[in-house]
Amino acid sequence: MHPSASNRADASTSIPKDSTSVIDAAIARLGSLKGALLPILHDIHEQLGYVPPAAVARIAQGLNLSQAEVHGVISFYHDFRTSPPGRHVIKLCRAEACQAMGSKHLEAHLTAQLGIGMNDTTADGSVTVEPVYCLGNCALAPSLLIDGKVIGRVTKRRLDQLLDGCRNQGAGA
């Protein structure tokens, strides 16, 4: 159990995956690509769920860039988190087509149910909620992405089912 959101970062250090080796392996494997920085950051992000601050210096050295350049790229792109997310990540679409189908009500329902804002993680570390601007599922709006899976025609009821799934899986994990 994670008693509070502020403790989550500490809790995450117990994740068995050795982040340093993930970072170094990404640099070794992808460093020779043209424009290697984004592929490297994606690789680290996919494996760890975020780009640890310690990655900046290692990548900078590996690619012969300044740390400022690496930090600048990480902070520019919405996708790259610098702290660990919850066990499940929900990205709710905020773009126009989903708004036309009531996504603002869904957003209010989602944040109220979880008691957190967008770009936030629940205290128990089960769910992170982020905005996304279009999933290309605009004919079946409103849409969201949950752990990389697109869900269309989302209703409050469907959202509640998904949240229950997140919580139950979290308790079992």
Binding site: A95, E96, A97, C98, Y133, C134, G136, C138, A139
Partner: peptide, 10 residues
């Protein structure tokens, strides 16, 4: 394809 309401590329 970032435009909301578009999905032909996808």
């Amino acid at each position: 394809e970032g435009d909301s309401g578009t999905f032909s590329d996808r």
